[in-house]
């Protein structure tokens, strides 16, 4: 791996972690959606760069899907949902932004501490990519558990998924990378359509078990 190629890959993957942090402290839905578009844009660049460096042309398709679908189509659709449902208010977080950021920093440290020692055999690019990817996945999880709104939950999930695509692109010569990103896109499209069709707003909108438990048995009695 040449110096410059490696640095650019490193820079782009690191950019995704930074974008994940940006997602963590947004307190407006529109801003959250915009940052997510940025997140996906950086992903498209990172995957595109991997395609060029590895000479793996099928990865250009994955990058294209990230660019068109996740950086443009999904944010536009989410924008419409937020406008239609009238939920463009301040977001509530469970613990407060400061705590989220601290937890996020801890998770990134964890990702690096976990990934770097176990991947000593892999080449440097895959290693760093994987560590960053795990960091993005963990930050996405954090976003999912700390938000209560359906749209931010979905954005958390999609940022997590971006991390997975980054990992798949970084794994040299990984087959089925395109198919997997298509499968994921279908999944996401369904979630977004789900929110839109069923007007999932505030009440049943989180994986917060307490909120979910309310309907379980009592409501039907």
């Amino acid at each position: 791996m040449h110096g410059l190629a490696f640095d650019i890959a490193h820079f782009l993957a690191g950019g995704m972690v930074v974008a994940s942090f940006l997602l963590l402290y947004q307190d407006r839905l529109y801003a959250l959606i915009h940052v997510f578009a940025l997140h996906s844009l950086v992903l498209a660049l990172a995957v595109g760069w991997q395609a060029a460096v590895q000479g793996a042309h099928h990865l250009y398709i994955t990058a294209g899907i990230a660019l068109v679908f996740k950086a443009i189509v999904i944010p536009v659709a989410l924008h419409r949902i937020v406008r239609r449902l009238g939920i463009h208010r301040t977001l509530e977080t469970v613990g407060g932004v400061g705590r989220d950021m601290l937890a996020g920093t801890g998770l990134v440290a964890l990702a690096i501490l976990v990934m770097l020692p176990v991947t000593t055999a892999a080449d440097a690019l895959a290693r760093e990519d994987l560590a960053f990817a795990l960091a993005v996945v963990l930050l996405g999880l954090l976003l999912m558990v700390t938000r209560r709104n359906a749209v931010s939950l979905v954005i958390g999930f999609m940022s997590l998924e971006n991390g997975l695509v980054l990992a798949a692109a970084g794994a040299r010569g990984m087959p089925l990378a395109v198919e997997i990103s298509v499968a994921f896109s279908v999944l996401i499209a369904m979630i977004v359509i789900g929110i839109f069709l069923f007007r999932i707003r505030e009440r049943f909108d989180s994986v917060d078990m307490q909120a979910m438990d309310t309907f379980r048995e009592e409501r039907r009695r």
Binding site: A133, L134, I191, G194, V207
Partner: peptide
């Protein structure tokens, strides 16, 4: 369905990371 969707997708996402590893 929504709850299943979110938790199921999360499981699927973790499984994919494992598969890549």
């Amino acid at each position: 369905a929504w709850k299943y969707f979110i938790l199921g997708s999360l499981g699927i996402a973790l499984a994919l990371f494992g598969t890549i590893l």
